[in-house]
Design a protein around this nucleic acid. Sequence first.
DNA 1: GTCTGGGTGTACGATAACGCACTGAAATGG
DNA 2: CCATTTCAGTGCGTTATCGTACACCCAGAC
Lengths: 242, 242
Amino acid sequence: MPKRLICPFGQNNLLHTLSAADRTLIEPHLQHVDMDRRMVMEGPNKPVEHIYFLKSGVGSTVASSESGRRIEVGLFGCEGMSGTSVVLQTAHSSFEVFMQISGEGFAIEADKMRGLLEQSPSMQRHLLRYVQTLMTQTSQTALSNGQCKLEERLARWLLMCHDRINGDVMELTHEFLSVMLGVRRAGVTVAIHMLEGKGLIRARRGEIVILDREGLENDAQNSYGVPETEYARVIGFDRPDA
Amino acid sequence: MPKRLICPFGQNNLLHTLSAADRTLIEPHLQHVDMDRRMVMEGPNKPVEHIYFLKSGVGSTVASSESGRRIEVGLFGCEGMSGTSVVLQTAHSSFEVFMQISGEGFAIEADKMRGLLEQSPSMQRHLLRYVQTLMTQTSQTALSNGQCKLEERLARWLLMCHDRINGDVMELTHEFLSVMLGVRRAGVTVAIHMLEGKGLIRARRGEIVILDREGLENDAQNSYGVPETEYARVIGFDRPDA
DNA sequence: GTCTGGGTGTACGATAACGCACTGAAATGG
DNA sequence: CCATTTCAGTGCGTTATCGTACACCCAGAC
């Protein structure tokens, strides 16, 4: 049976799972925004100005070193948010966070968010618990980067992305994936052919379609699943209202 | 000029940098403990029972997947603490956390810690800011695992460990390092010889001595330094008292 | 229609690690 | 002191990925 993060597409699950009181508190401050591909939500060593809760689309957190190496360390969609450093009470982010796949979301000013966190311990608690799942995700990424073959890492990435989109079609170029995974573009092409050869995906120009999700999970060799399970446990998908 | 996390050896810097009021609050609950190598501070999918603030020694956070792959995703000494999932308001940890290099520390029961966090927003804020530096560390580990050669990763690891010990001598076996870095034991042996050949370290049976810290930082090619700088900024090393 | 550029397929030698296996040296413990 | 265990050094064929390079294909622009 396939595991999967059941993302309530078209609404943000972090907001959805807030208590009624907290939702009432935050809603007046949320502005609807279109989030286009490549839109930058925060930048390294810059103060976070806005926090974004996605309703659709996928965002990516990329770490970099002074020597210009880059790699994706986190990914989120309608289950998550940007701006976790505000939740952790530091103004700055060490990472670049930007949109990978266009979508829509809600923005809130960082200062307002800080005020709400102070005002509502339950909201703070909720978002802190989300941060924990993010840490788990990043840790599993570190594990994956250190121990898995490219094919496996690609399978994992596609699964995580698939969880966060509506349907089975993703608009992605090999070039783009190579940046996320921190490998050669040509390497991605080969890995994609492997997965395609096994009938797990279909690749077209600028597009990858998931054909066999369960097969992909198998191929990912358990490098998928840990943060997803944790998310279901610590956040869940139901409104807490009685 | 070498960068370096200046760890106030022999006391815990997170406790040291608390406000006087918060120190008064937490001190009655702290129990002094000897922390031997291999001592387990928390285990995967188990509730955290105690939180440890190290005064000396080094602890390690290891992520694992169902298929048994393991790799270190974080490391801390007298600058940090275990049990961050309590700070993030989830009872459980996804990781195994254990001592790598024996030392001493303070233990506090998880429930008491939760109470203190609720009671003192400033203490919570302080520890949350520490969590942010940990996230940065894990992210840089993910970057390092994905993009750097073994020699570079080893240099980074040795630097991080060096920051957290007193002096330049570390008791470590190749076997042990191979687990931390997620590579073959024989690979570690070769990498150590590289660094030794450059005169950066000296290796004996079960022991590595740092000879040229600045040279090591050079060798690590900027894969060292980001979380260390962030720690200095968000936590610092001075008491906040006026 | 042709041009142009982004995206993809492919090749090939080089390199970093791997898995495995065996040896020897140093510590430990009766 | 000798037996045992732990740790380190080394070799060798194999594999994954790299760097680089080039040709092709498709979509939109002119």
